[in-house]
């Protein structure tokens, strides 16, 4: 479903991604873990071209997004704004800071893109929005403004908003890092349900228990490269790489002095 090959990205002189290749099968839930600064968030943002990257390509369901290889010359060409926007409809992303539109109600937030970008008729879009709100457990908040909701509620609205575009792939960028601990559970539950329903997802998170429970595959990144990937049980019990072992040991031993 998702294929990233050889992605290289620098911020100025700092090379944040040093040739990352990742593929995700349809229906698979991949969780990316690793220390801060490892490039996890940048990797996610490169998928739907919120960040430009110098080398590499990304394809979703076989269709390139962001850059394509020109068949005649073989060089890398940036796609037009229109093509990129169309490709972005296939990908849903939920951000750490929810990024809801504060001047719109919850319902308006969810239907804005389907109506204006996909041309879905208002009645149909609103019906779907209400279904999604029920899915994330916020049916009674449709007419509220985001400022009146808790962080966890806003994040669930953000998930519903992304799902309203019927994406083939969902990206989650540390979506619970900004939440109070008591609100984390409801968001992770929603994500777990999505995974069970067969959504293809790439999740960047610090929540190790979520990674262990929900991931079909875990990817460990550090210093801009993928260090190791594998099944959660295998990685948590017997990691192949020393670095991963250190990282997980610190997590396992986190309350020991």
């Amino acid at each position: 479903m998702l294929a990233m090959t050889g992605v290289v990205k620098s911020f100025g002189t700092n090379q944040v991604l040093r040739g990352v290749s990742l593929s995700v099968a349809a229906g698979e839930a991949v969780v990316v873990i690793g220390p801060s600064g490892s490039g996890k968030t940048t990797l996610l943002r490169c998928i739907n071209l919120l960040e430009d990257y110098e080398q590499g390509t990304v394809t979703v369901d076989g269709m390139p997004i962001g850059y394509r290889i020109d068949p005649r010359g073989g060089q890398r060409v940036r796609m037009s704004e229109r093509e990129i926007a169309a490709a972005r409809e296939m990908i849903g992303i939920v951000f750490q800071s929810y990024n809801l539109f504060p001047h719109m109600t919850v319902l308006q937030n969810i239907v804005a893109a389907p109506i204006r970008v996909k041309g879905v008729p208002r009645a149909k879009a609103e019906a779907r929005a209400r279904d999604l709100l029920a899915l994330v457990g916020l049916s009674d908040k449709a007419q509220e403004y985001p400022v009146r909701l808790s962080g966890g509620q806003q994040q669930r609205v953000a998930i519903a908003r992304a799902l309203a575009m019927d994406p083939k792939l969902m990206l989650f960028d540390e979506v619970t890092s900004a939440l109070d601990p008591e609100l984390v559970g409801e968001v992770l539950a929603a994500m777990q349900q999505l995974a069970r329903d067969g959504m293809t997802m790439v999740v960047v998170t610090h929540e190790m228990s979520f990674a262990r429970d929900v991931a079909d595959r875990i990817v460990f990144m550090e210093g801009g490269v993928i260090v190791e990937e594998g099944q959660p049980e295998q990685m948590f019990a017997a990691p192949k790489t020393e670095r991963v072992r250190q990282f997980l040991k610190r997590y396992n031993d986190r309350y020991r002095i």
């Binding site: 539109f101 204006r116 970008v117």
Partner: peptide, 15 residues
Amino acid sequence: AQWDAARSLGMQRHL
């Protein structure tokens, strides 16, 4: 972040 969110939903510049 507002620009990011809107672009991620497939919105183009004018919209």
